[in-house]
Simulated assay, not measured.
Amino acid sequence: MTAHETVDYVDADDRPVTRGPRGGAAARGLYYRVAATVCTDSAGRLLVYRRPDWAAVYPAHHDILIGGCPRAGESYAEAAARELHEELGVVAVPRLLLHQPRPSPLGRCWLAVHVAEVPTPSRVDPREIADHFFVPTADLADRPPTPFVPEGRRVLAQLLARGLPLPPP
Rank of each mutant, 00 (worst) to 15 (best):
M1P: 14
M1E: 10
M1V: 14
T2W: 10
A3N: 11
E5S: 11
V7W: 05
D8V: 04
Y9A: 10
D11E: 09
D14P: 05
V17W: 00
V17D: 00
T18W: 05
R19S: 14
R19L: 05
R22H: 01
R22N: 02
G24E: 08
G24D: 06
A26I: 00
G29I: 11
Y31H: 14
Y31L: 07
R33M: 08
A35E: 06
A36Q: 11
A36E: 07
V38Y: 09
S42T: 15
G44D: 07
G44A: 07
G44T: 09
L47T: 06
L47F: 09
V48T: 14
R50W: 12
R50F: 02
W54A: 12
A55W: 02
A55D: 04
A56Y: 01
V57W: 04
Y58M: 01
P59F: 11
H62F: 15
L65F: 02
I66K: 00
I66A: 02
C69P: 11
P70I: 09
R71I: 06
A72L: 09
G73Y: 06
A77Y: 03
A77K: 12
A79N: 13
A80N: 02
A80H: 05
A81F: 01
R82S: 10
L84H: 10
H85R: 15
G89P: 09
V91A: 15
V91L: 14
V93K: 12
P94W: 05
P94R: 03
P94V: 00
L98D: 12
H99Q: 06
R102W: 04
P103N: 03
L106G: 00
G107L: 09
G107C: 04
R108G: 15
R108W: 12
C109V: 14
W110T: 09
L111W: 10
V113R: 06
H114R: 02
H114D: 01
V115Q: 13
A116D: 10
T120S: 02
D125Y: 08
R127Y: 08
E128Y: 08
E128D: 00
V135S: 12
P136F: 05
P136N: 02
T137W: 01
A138N: 09
A138P: 06
R143T: 13
P144S: 04
T146Y: 03
P147V: 09
P150W: 08
V155C: 08
A157G: 13
A157C: 11
A157V: 10
A157T: 14
Q158T: 15
G163N: 13
L164F: 11
P167E: 08
P169S: 04
P169K: 03
